[in-house]
Structures are given as structure tokens and as C-alpha cells.
Computed example of a mutant assay.
Amino acid sequence: MRGVPIRLRPPSRRPPAGPVPVASAAEARARGLLRRPALLLALPVVASCVQQGDLGRPAPTAWNSLIDAAGTLAARERGEPSSFFPYTDDERILRDRSWRYLMPARDRSLFDNALDNLTRARVLPAEWRLSDPRAYLDAILAEPFRSPVSRYRRLSDDLTADGRLIPAFAETAARVVRADLTRLRSLPFIRTLDDRDVRSAAMRVAENRCLIAWVRRETAARSDSYRTALEHLLVAVPSEEAVGAERALAFLESRRRLLDPLLPADAESRCGLAPAPEEGPQAGLVTKG
């Protein structure tokens, strides 16, 4: 697994030899959308109308499919890994399960949420949004709570929810990585593929791995934000509820390490992502005091 390089840019801008597959209806509409600047500028507004499914994921509607297709095209124009191969069942599940970690943990304005969704879909590049460890803290402090205890419980609930969903994502990601290895190993033995097929296969492998790397980085960033919130609450409004929040943070940290063996340690930088925040001190803010 570690010996397969991640190719971030296509080797050539020239159209490959061989027949060009017919794009899906959503892809065709997305192409037209990206060529019309007025509509592209309106995307952040209309994206706010994205219908939500279970676990905060987008519902499978025609509009959501259009946003995802537009994201594939936008990423391709930026030179990022993108393939028009249809998703396997596991690849689709992987993208569904990544939703929670690619969207911010805190509540934001309608417009900001729309931009975050466009970033998740890759219409906007991942690096346009600066990481702010205090954003989650500011959000929970801004909410009207009758007691500081409620803020601790909100923090514990978010930590626990994040930790519980990581094993399912890691299991799906491991299956996708194994399938990608099978895909790459079979390429030299299949003689009916043209250059476009080979390139699309390589791009899908890189696309999958960079998605996993992105989620791995975002889980680290979320953990950093949660720790910042816990440290501030512990000083500003000490409470016995901090013990439960610290245990939930330790739970998230233990689950987050399930993502480490999936990819090389430098996968984030090879995918053009900023490095994850450095891991803070281990749990013990409350129990060691």
C-alpha cells in the first residue's frame, strides 16, 4: 500500500486517445453550470437549500447530485485528482460517511454553511477555509444556555458522536484501499484499456486516498477545537461535568488513531492539504488536577 504513489495532477492536458465515455446527465449539467459565471456565483446561495438526509448527510436528490458533479469538474480544472468512473458501493458509502468530518462541528450562518457544503463537494478548494481552533468554542459560547453545564454536555455529545462514527468510516476506507490496490495491480494485465481508462483508474485511486487523508486531517482539527473549548470552559466555568467531557475527548482520540494505518504519514501533504494540528497534551486536564 505504501509503495503506490499518489498522483495529484494528470500527466498531460491533451485529450487521451480512444473513445470518450458519455457523461452522465448530472455531469453534463454541471459542465454548463461551471461555464456560466453568473450561476457559479449564485452557487453559495442556492447550495444553502441542500436537503439533509440522516446523520447530517445530503439527501440523494437531483440537486445534490448536480453539486457533487460540479465539484468533480471544478477539482479537475484545478488539477486535483478526479475521475468520472462511477463510484463503487464502498466509494459512495465512504463519501457519505465523510460528510460529518468535512463539515464544521459548529453551527454557522446560512451563507457560511453553503460555502462549507461547496467545499465538501470540492466546488471550492479545501484550503480556502482557514482553520480556527476557537471557532467551535465561540459557537457554543454564543448559544443561549441557562447553565454552563449545558455547554459541557454539548461538548461531550459532539465528542462522543464523532468518536462513534470513526470506526465505520475506517472500515469502509480500508475496503476502498484494498479494492484500489486490486485495481492498480490488474492494470498491466488488461489489454483492452485505452489511455483514458488507465488515467481515470489512477485518478480514482488518488481521489479516494486524498479523501481519506482529508478526513484524517479534519478529525485532528476537530479534536484540537474540542480540546480548546474544554480548556477554556475548565478555566472560565469549572464544573464536575468537565470530567465527562475529558473522557469523551480521550474516547475520540483513541478512535481517531484508527485512521493512521490507512495511509502514509505524509499523505496529507502529498494531497496538497495543510498538515494536521500538532497533537496537544494527553488527557488529564481534570483527572490529574
Results as ranks from 00 to 15, higher is better:
V198I: 15
T182S: 11
S239H: 04
S225R: 11
A161M: 09
V176F: 06
S156A: 15
P148M: 04
H232F: 15
H232N: 04
L165N: 10
E207G: 10
P238G: 01
I166R: 04
D158T: 08
T192R: 15
R199G: 05
R185W: 09
D162H: 11
V243I: 10
D158Y: 01
A213Y: 12
R247F: 08
V198L: 15
F169P: 04
A179M: 05
R199N: 06
A236N: 06
A170R: 07
R185G: 09
V237D: 10
R183K: 11
E218A: 14
R217I: 05
F145M: 04
R191W: 07
T192E: 13
T182R: 11
R185S: 12
E207C: 07
Y226Q: 08
R175A: 05
P167D: 03
R209V: 06
A179L: 05
V235A: 13
Y152C: 07
T160W: 00
S225K: 03
A202T: 09
A229K: 10
P188W: 02
I190Q: 10
R196H: 04
R151H: 04
R217Q: 14
T228E: 15
Y152D: 08
P167S: 01
R153N: 07
S150R: 14
R222C: 05
V237S: 11
L187V: 15
F189D: 14
D197S: 14
A174N: 11
R196W: 00
A202Q: 15
R185A: 14
A179P: 01
R164H: 00
A229S: 14
E171G: 05
R151W: 01
F189G: 07
P188C: 08
F189A: 13
A202R: 15
R146L: 10
P188Q: 06
A248M: 05
F145K: 07
L230P: 04
A245Q: 07
S150H: 10
A174P: 00
P188R: 05
F145H: 14
S225H: 04
V198G: 05
R183C: 08
V235R: 15
P238Y: 00
L155T: 02
A220L: 09
E240I: 02
R204D: 01
T160N: 03
R227V: 08
R146I: 03
T192V: 09
P167W: 05
E218K: 13
R227Q: 14
T182V: 10
S150G: 11
A174E: 10
R196F: 01
D162S: 12
T182I: 00
M203F: 12
A202L: 13
T172I: 12
L184H: 06
D195L: 10
R199F: 02
V177D: 00
R216H: 13
S200W: 11
S223E: 15
T192P: 05
V215E: 08
T182P: 00
R217C: 10
I190D: 12
